[in-house]
Simulated assay, not measured.
Amino acid sequence: MHNPSDIRIVTADDHPLLLQGLNDTLTRRGYELAGTANNGTEALQLILDKQPEIAILDIEMPYLTGLDIAEICLERGLTTKIIILSYHKEVAFIHKAQRLNLSGYLLKEDTTTEISTCIEALLNGETYYSPAIAQSTMEQSSEIQKMLDLLTPSEKKILKMIAESHSTEAIAELLHVSIRTIEKHRSNIIRKLDLNGQTHTLSIWAHEQKGVIKGL
Score class of each variant (00 low, 15 high):
Glu114Lys: 09
Glu114Val: 02
Glu114Met: 11
Glu114Asn: 09
Glu114Thr: 05
Glu114Ala: 10
Ile115Asp: 02
Ile115Ala: 04
Ile115Asn: 02
Ile115His: 03
Ser116Ile: 06
Thr117Glu: 12
Thr117Ser: 14
Thr117Tyr: 07
Thr117Arg: 11
Thr117Met: 07
Cys118Gln: 03
Cys118Tyr: 08
Ile119Tyr: 05
Ile119His: 04
Ile119Cys: 06
Ile119Ala: 07
Glu120Tyr: 03
Glu120Ala: 14
Glu120Pro: 00
Glu120Phe: 02
Leu122Ser: 11
Leu123Cys: 09
Asn124Asp: 13
Gly125Pro: 03
Gly125Leu: 10
Gly125Glu: 09
Gly125Asn: 13
Glu126Ile: 06
Glu126Ser: 11
Glu126Lys: 15
Thr127Arg: 13
Thr127Pro: 01
Thr127Ala: 12
Thr127Ile: 12
Thr127Asp: 07
Tyr128Ile: 04
Tyr128Val: 06
Tyr128Pro: 00
Tyr128Ala: 02
Tyr129Asp: 01
Tyr129Ala: 01
Tyr129Ser: 06
Tyr129Asn: 02
Tyr129Leu: 08
Tyr129Pro: 06
Tyr129Val: 03
Ser130Gly: 08
Ser130Asp: 07
Ser130Arg: 04
Ser130Phe: 06
Pro131Phe: 01
Pro131Ala: 07
Pro131Ser: 09
Pro131Leu: 08
Ala132Thr: 11
Ala132Val: 06
Ile133Pro: 01
Ala134Val: 07
Ala134Leu: 11
Ala134Cys: 02
Gln135Ala: 14
Ser136Pro: 03
Thr137Glu: 14
Thr137Gln: 13
Thr137Ala: 10
Thr137Pro: 03
Thr137Phe: 13
Met138Tyr: 01
Met138Gly: 09
Met138Ala: 15
Glu139Lys: 13
Glu139Ile: 14
Gln140Pro: 06
Gln140Ser: 09
Gln140Glu: 15
Ser141Leu: 04
Ser141Lys: 13
Ser141Tyr: 00
Ser141Met: 12
Ser141Asp: 10
Ser141Ala: 13
Ser142Arg: 14
Ser142His: 13
Ser142Gln: 14
Ser142Val: 10
Ser142Asp: 12
Glu143Thr: 12
Glu143Leu: 15
Glu143Cys: 07
Ile144Lys: 03
Ile144Met: 10
Ile144Thr: 12
Gln145Gly: 03
Lys146Val: 13
Met147Glu: 11
Met147Thr: 10
Met147Ala: 14
Leu148Glu: 08
Asp149Tyr: 01
Asp149Ile: 08
Leu150Met: 11
Leu151Asn: 06
Leu151Met: 09
Leu151Glu: 05
Leu151Asp: 05
Thr152Ser: 15
Pro153Asp: 08
Pro153Lys: 09
Pro153Ile: 10
Ser154Ala: 13
Ser154Trp: 03
Glu155Trp: 05
Glu155Leu: 07
Glu155Tyr: 05
Lys156Met: 11
Lys157Tyr: 02
Lys157Gln: 14
Lys157Ile: 07
Ile158Val: 15
Leu159Asp: 02
Leu159Cys: 04
Leu159Lys: 02
Leu159Val: 01
Leu159Glu: 02
Leu159Ser: 02
Lys160Gln: 14
Lys160Asn: 10
Lys160Phe: 04
Met161Lys: 11
Met161Ser: 09
Met161Pro: 08
Met161Gln: 14
Ile162Lys: 06
Ile162Glu: 05
Ala163Glu: 01
Glu164Thr: 05
Glu164His: 13
Glu164Pro: 05
Glu164Ser: 15
Glu164Ile: 00
Glu164Asn: 15
Glu164Lys: 15
Ser165Trp: 02
Ser165His: 15
Ser165Tyr: 11
Ser165Cys: 08
Ser165Asn: 15
Ser165Thr: 11
